[in-house]
Computed example of a mutant assay.
Amino acid sequence: MSFGQTVRAVAWSFFGVRKGAEHEADMAKLNPVHVIIAGVIGAALFVLTLVALVRWVIASGVAS
């Protein structure tokens, strides 16, 4: 599988919406190194998005 396909599989796994047959097919083809890299990038993007959202809410005065 290409790195793009791995990113897609990891993204779906973040949401937890994978069918059993698709999951099994992906597990047979995925490169473990690509999965780790895509997972770390996905987690970092998720955390950065949450930090940006919190900063925006605090700056807007909604949290006061």
Rank of each mutant, 00 (worst) to 15 (best):
A44L: 14
V57M: 11
R18V: 12
V17H: 11
V62E: 04
G4L: 06
S2P: 01
V47H: 03
A59L: 04
V51G: 01
A21R: 12
V7C: 08
P32I: 09
A38C: 15
E22F: 07
E22M: 10
A21D: 07
V54R: 13
V62G: 07
F14K: 11
V17Q: 14
K29P: 00
V57N: 06
I36T: 13
A21T: 08
V47Q: 07
L45D: 09
V10D: 00
V7Q: 14
V62N: 02
I37H: 03
I41Q: 07
R18M: 12
Q5Y: 01
V62W: 05
V10W: 00
T49I: 06
R55H: 13
L53H: 04
A21G: 01
V47R: 07
V33K: 08
A44Y: 09
F3A: 10
R8Q: 11
F14P: 00
F46E: 15
F3V: 07
E24Q: 12
F3C: 02
E22A: 15
V17W: 04
V40I: 15
L30G: 01
K29Y: 02
G42F: 02
L45N: 12
A63F: 08
V10H: 00
T6Q: 03
G42H: 05
L53F: 14
V54F: 13
H34L: 02
I41E: 08
W12K: 15
L45F: 12
P32A: 08
S64R: 12
A44K: 09
A59R: 11
L53N: 08
F46V: 10
G4M: 10
I37Y: 05
M1Q: 04
G39A: 05
G4S: 11
A43E: 14
V47W: 13
V57C: 09
Q5I: 03
V57S: 06
I37T: 15
A63K: 01
M1W: 02
H23D: 03
A28F: 06
A38S: 08
H23V: 04
R55P: 00
L45H: 10
L45W: 07
E22W: 09
L50E: 13
V57E: 05
E22R: 15
M1E: 03
V57Q: 08
Q5N: 11
V62D: 02
F3E: 04
I58F: 08
G16N: 02
L50H: 06
K19C: 04
V7A: 15
E22P: 00
V10R: 00
V51F: 07
T6N: 04
F15Q: 09
V33P: 00
S2T: 14
L50P: 00
V62P: 01
S2N: 15
S60V: 05
L30M: 15
T49Q: 09
A44M: 06
Q5F: 01
F14V: 10
Q5W: 03
G42P: 00
V33Q: 13
L45R: 13
M1V: 05
V40K: 09
I41R: 07
A43T: 15
Q5K: 09
L53R: 12
V33G: 03
L30N: 06
A28L: 14
R8Y: 06
A21N: 06
V51W: 04
R18K: 08
A52P: 00
I36L: 12
I58T: 11
R55T: 09
A21L: 04
